[in-house]
Design a protein around this nucleic acid. Structure first.
Lengths: 143, 143
DNA sequence: TGTGAAGCTTCCCATCATGGGAAGGTCAAG
DNA sequence: CTTGACCTTCCCATGATGGGAAGCTTCACA
């Protein structure tokens, strides 16, 4: 199987497969006489594992940890759970952060007329108590 | 006011102030004889505006749009509201995406013993139906 | 007046994960 | 033999930020 087929079968782009090899996430593949990389079912399984981990938001570093645990028959499931739990916490922190932004923005948007008039509480909030500055660029041909 | 004081007053790092100037988000500052950038109250207000927009998750590109609208006395508040609304939608999309990850991960973590035994539904899920591959690296001195 | 510390300048590099594209080798079908 | 679809490596770009070096200036203090 060439890299194109492995990409097709795993859902990981050929570009990324080469990159994962380069950073040591997957081992260097054997080559045929023409210097093409050769893949088998096992490599495709690994790539799919990586793909799924990425889809769950794990970083490549976390993915590498999970991959090693997967291969380690003597792993303790607690180690895996720790990685997952930490990742959940990180996701929840980021979700909360973004929810805070949404809450503020919705309030501001709600207060904004959204019409032809220039008055806008969104800009007022961003500006604090500051007056609008003088134009910076694309100066409209000064009189 | 030197860049250090402007940084202090605006909450934007000196590094970033120079970068914003480089990409044209803020106009190039005047220099003193010693080639130091000079800042006034107005520049600090602009930097604070940028800082607040960034805190609400707006990209630098969106921030530039908002900055221009702020300076445009003849703006229509609808234009501002549009930027904000699009940003809210984007945030909500990303939040939903991450919430989906959290949901899956919590389910998997719940099913995982998290003990000394190797059996782990989290890895099983990532692996799909695939068997664990042979070890990849850090080969433990083969017999 | 000297000196050291702190602050400024520019320039280059790193992050994280991914894509784009060029230049060139290879292969299979027509 | 040509054409097109692969493959290879190499370099560059993203977005926003930080780190750090090398070389200025400026200021405070002895």
């Amino acid at each position: 199987m060439n890299i194109g087929q492995a990409s097709e079968a795993s859902g990981v782009s050929a570009k990324m497969i080469r990159y994962y090899e380069e950073i040591g996430l997957i081992r260097p593949m054997g080559r045929t006489g023409n210097n093409y990389r050769v893949y088998g079912e096992e490599e495709v399984h690994v790539l799919r594992f990586i793909k799924r981990a990425r889809n769950l938001g794990f970083s490549l570093e976390e993915t590498e940890t999970l991959l090693k645990l997967w291969q380690d028959q003597s792993r303790e499931s607690a180690a895996v759970k720790d990685v997952a739990t930490a990742h959940i916490a990180d996701l929840e922190r980021r979700i909360a952060e973004m929810q805070g932004m949404v809450k503020t923005l919705k309030h501001l948007a709600h207060c904004c007329g959204g019409d032809q008039r220039p008055n806008c509480p969104i800009l007022d909030d961003l500006a604090g108590d500051a007056p609008a500055p003088t134009p910076r660029k694309k100066a409209k041909q000064p009189a």
